[in-house]
Simulated scan of single mutants.
Amino acid sequence: MGTKLIIDTDPGVDDAFAIALAARSEDVDLLGVTTVFGNVPLATTTSNARRLLQLCDRPDVPVAAGAARPLVYRELHRASTVHGSDGLSGRGGSLPEATRPLEDSDAVSLMVSLLEAADEPVTIAPIGPLTNIAALLAAHPGVRSKIARIVLMGGAIVRGNATAVAEFNIWADPDAARRVIVEDDVPCVMVPLDLTHRCAVDGEWLAKLAASGPVGQALNGFTPDYLAHYRQVLGYEGIVMHDAVAVAEAIRPGLLRTETHPVNVDSTPGPTRGMTIVDQRAVPKAPTGRLVEVAVDTELDGLREFVLSRLAGGR
């Protein structure tokens, strides 16, 4: 059927775009969706994920709830000022109620069962804090061979958004991020802010999305608070669809151009906590982290068209 995919998410406006992108792509076998705290609390991210799948007419996809807090330290703040009080600009209630019950098992247990049952390696796309993925790799090392690669949205090369140097998903649980990105050996692609910001879409793109049908109209309807934030960041009417960029690469490997660099994650207390250190030196003098594929470029208009066509139902 195509790419076998598990999405781990904290919806979130950009998460909503990413979930719909996978759910509406015929070349994706969306095995399951797991939820994590992040943009809003776990109960809300879980409800949003289930209802988004219902919007996309995908009640066949199981959803399981995962971590409600980081591995070690409680998070300091959420992203509700960016995504709105419910993660979807206060409009999550407009989504249809989910017909499929929430799985009785937790997120890690669902991932283990899906990985063990898969007849080929599975791509995991974590687009929220990495708490669930760290727990999976720590508690179930035997499933590593069933993971094709981890394509995560997170990190930054130059500057952050949660702090001056840290991107939100990594900053929300740096200990988990370090466990996944630095200390494990599962192939990993990091899609950082530096690239996702360049993939921003403007008002004309959003208008095309809204005119594409009920799903596109609903997705566009979640953007008012997000637009208000990115109007200040970008200087024009548009949004950054961070997580959809990572899921696009998960669906179509090679859509993003990557470079392999040593990457480290600062999990120490202090002003650089959550920083991803990407060593771009031609000849590093000493090991500074694990070698990770870092997405650095893409054909921007092609990426935007790929996402729009899928969200609009052109699979």
Rank of each mutant, 00 (worst) to 15 (best):
M153I: 04
A200Q: 12
V143I: 15
I277D: 10
G216K: 02
A162E: 06
V165N: 08
H229F: 15
A118S: 12
R304H: 09
V294C: 06
N161C: 14
N220P: 00
D175H: 14
F306D: 01
R257G: 12
A107S: 09
M190F: 10
D243F: 03
D185A: 11
W205G: 02
V158P: 06
T163A: 11
A218Q: 01
R58A: 08
L31D: 06
V72A: 07
V186L: 08
L136A: 08
L42G: 02
H83E: 14
Y226K: 07
R24S: 04
P41D: 12
I133M: 12
V296C: 13
S145T: 15
A156W: 05
V265N: 01
S94P: 01
I251D: 04
T163Y: 03
N169M: 07
T3Y: 00
H77I: 12
Q217T: 08
L234P: 06
E299W: 11
L95V: 03
I157F: 06
P141E: 12
A16M: 00
P214R: 11
A162T: 05
H261Q: 07
L55M: 13
N48F: 02
A156T: 07
D297V: 10
D225Q: 15
R149P: 06
P224L: 00
Q54Y: 12
Y236T: 02
L71V: 06
A250D: 04
R315W: 11
G90E: 08
N132I: 00
D194A: 10
P253M: 10
V28R: 06
L31C: 08
L5N: 02
P271Y: 06
G235N: 05
V180G: 13
R231A: 08
R159I: 11
R315M: 13
D266T: 12
G32S: 15
P70R: 02
R51S: 10
F168K: 07
A176Y: 09
A64G: 11
P214Y: 09
V61M: 01
A312C: 11
S109I: 09
L102E: 14
L95G: 00
V180N: 13
P214V: 00
A286N: 07
A43G: 08
G314D: 14
A218Y: 04
S25W: 11
L311R: 08
R281M: 07
L95S: 04
G313S: 12
E299S: 14
Q280R: 15
A118G: 06
R310A: 13
P41L: 03
G289Q: 09
P192K: 14
L256W: 07
N48E: 01
V292M: 04
T298K: 04
R74Q: 13
G274D: 05
A177Q: 05
Y230Q: 03
V72F: 08
T260H: 08
I127F: 00
P141N: 10
A134L: 06
T163Q: 12
P101I: 12
R100A: 14
D15R: 13
M275F: 10
A18E: 04
L152G: 09
D185H: 14
E116C: 03
D301K: 14
A244W: 02
E305R: 15
A177T: 08
R51C: 11
H197T: 12
A177H: 03
